[in-house]
Design a protein around this nucleic acid. Structure first.
Lengths: 345, 345
DNA sequence: TCTTTTTCCGTTAACGCACACGGAAAGGCA
DNA sequence: TGCCTTTCCGTGTGCGTTAACGGAAAAAGA
């Protein structure tokens, strides 16, 4: 139990009133140069830091933060950020910040419009969201800018959208990591496949970058002479599995597959029960975790969507309540998940 | 900007004064059953949560937390928890909590006694420490118990020491992970070596558990028929490197080495420049990071000492200031580091 | 010199909660 | 009836900071 210096003590030391101290503390002017410097010096010397509790109590601000995400089933990707948001909801309530969750139907654009407009009606002070429906979200973000509602994009989203922060993962580096994990200890003559199972409606920028990163890894490690090939197939295609099967059997000496999105579980359907192909995928969906558990695949790169959402709300809170600007881009460290690490998720 | 209910409003709704509301809020008695239930009901209904800022301001508590660690050079293991502690120092200052750092000379037991007794003299309210000098720390912790000073052990330490929390990593699981990473994609006839470079003064429990975990992994995956062998050699031995070299050349078909502590950099000295042995080590010392960078080793398991220290202080703060009990044991997720992930550390 | 502006600073009332103090009302006892 | 507990509750002050208000002193203008 020690004591922290207060503005009152600074005032006494400087022979002024607390009002004056407060004025220099917040650069509110109306203070002579001499006393300003005197007070600044004293603050410096005694290492003064304002009491957050008193500060926030006096400011007495209550904020509402909206979280906008797609509806989803249990075990899907979006359960994770939702969990993070709910944790934040709980943690920040005592700090006077309300977190409200808004879910829309990904397949129904009207649902998006309806839900997102409700965010404005409810007078939220800030928004956390993922840019899933690219174009619709884009115009929504334009409106946010107009109305001066700050927002943070998580996971995916265009960087020039006006977000105060973009929280995600370095996709390029993720691709490189995948390259490293796939090629690691393999024969020089091995062949690797990038299996891009696309979603027609929402082309994903991250996936592109991951593939580019994957390729760049092999460009930087030429001495290994691996062959890589990219194969794309739309998820909506009725014969996806068949097409993948054909592709696989057409390749000899295939030693590794990189699935640059969460669709490993589709690839799994096309694999023979006891294959010897190393597989690196993305995202800890329940289905994908099962694949790890059963050793059908080897590595999953975790985007840490839970942390993305939680940190996003934390940043919004600090932005609103303590005028702290978050970093423009926050890159969460890549997280490699193996069977033996599953217990943590 | 919404509004949060206050005790004043509850008082108005219940037709009592705020004093009465406060009494039921803290179970301080002196309230009739009827009004108690009435007020409880209202709180429930409007979902009342006390304002943390007002609460802490009124309580106005200032704590001192001591961090006790070994002195060290830049790039060594202890730089990381120290960094975490310094970050916490900065973050918690505004919350009225001071973090004071105490460093002792690992090789000088008197230094430990001197420094640790200073912790008591300075009237710290709680302590964060690592049990490096096992016996000396043990008696120090006894004294803490006597003086009722709560403490948290990080990284290493006996679990029955009376700590309010033990923050570390699951060593057994770490060993299993090492087994997984080493054996992954290797020939069935491969041989693996556990290279235990010991430190005579401080036998480390974690290392033992890691080795046991490593062995358990292969016991659970018998179909792979790998051979494993454990080789120990004291770091203080003048001929460590030579002895390791001899060991390595005595093993044919050696495909992997597991170094269950931070001493990979010593093994590196015994390796031929272009070896083909897969190596899994521990801890991100500068020297070890260099080895990853140069592809002399393949994986490092990161104990996340930075987070251990930071979280430890956070828990102590919550324990002291908000009477929240931390979990008895906190296991940070295992973190796999490869060359392509180095940029994050 | 007197008036008007500008510069600079002190005072004070919140903010929501904790807790000590004191006191009214009701019950108990003679 | 009078006096004394016991039960229950209201009042008031303080925590450190914020920011509005007002006013004295100095500077500028007449």
């Amino acid at each position: 139990m020690s004591v922290k210096p207060t503005i009152k003590e600074i005032a006494k030391l400087a022979n002024v009133s607390i009002g004056t101290v407060d004025r220099v503390l917040h650069n509110r002017g109306d203070v002579s140069k001499k006393t300003t410097q005197l007070i600044r010096g004293i603050m410096e010397e005694i290492n003064y830091v304002p009491n957050t509790f008193a500060r926030n109590l006096a400011l007495n601000k209550n904020f509402k933060i909206a979280v906008l995400l797609p509806e989803h089933e249990k075990g899907e990707y979006w359960t994770a950020p939702l969990k993070g948001a709910k944790k934040a909801l709980k943690d920040f309530k005592a700090l006077g910040t309300m977190v409200q969750i808004y879910l829309y139907d990904q397949k129904d654009k009207n649902s998006f419009f309806e839900v997102s407009s409700r965010i404005f009606k409810d007078k939220n002070d800030a928004i956390l969201l993922a840019q899933v429906l690219f174009d619709e979200t884009k115009s929504f973000l334009e409106e946010c800018k107009k109305k001066k509602v700050p927002f943070i994009l998580i996971g995916t989203g265009q960087h020039n959208s006006g977000a105060i922060s973009y929280i995600g993962q370095n996709s390029h580096q993720g691709g490189r990591l995948a390259g490293e994990l796939l090629s690691f200890g393999q024969n020089k003559q091995s062949k690797f496949l990038v299996l891009n199972i696309t979603k027609a409606q929402n082309p994903n920028v991250n996936v592109k970058e991951r593939i580019a990163g994957f390729e760049s890894y092999f460009k930087d490690n030429k001495e290994q002479e691996f062959q890589i090939e990219v194969f794309s197939v739309p998820q909506e295609d009725k014969n996806v599995v068949q097409k993948i099967k054909e592709k696989l059997s057409s390749l000899n000496n295939l030693k590794g597959i990189f699935v640059p999105n969460s669709k490993s579980f589709i690839l799994a359907k096309a694999l023979s029960p006891s294959h010897h192909i190393r597989i690196v995928g993305y995202d800890l969906l329940d289905k994908n975790k099962q694949l790890l558990e059963n050793k059908k695949i080897d590595f999953l790169i975790n985007q840490r969507p839970y942390d993305q959402a939680y940190q996003g709300i934390e940043y919004l809170y600090k932005f609103l309540g303590m005028q702290q600007d978050p970093p423009q881009v926050v890159s969460l460290p890549l997280d490699i998940v193996t069977k033996e690490k599953l217990m943590y998720y």
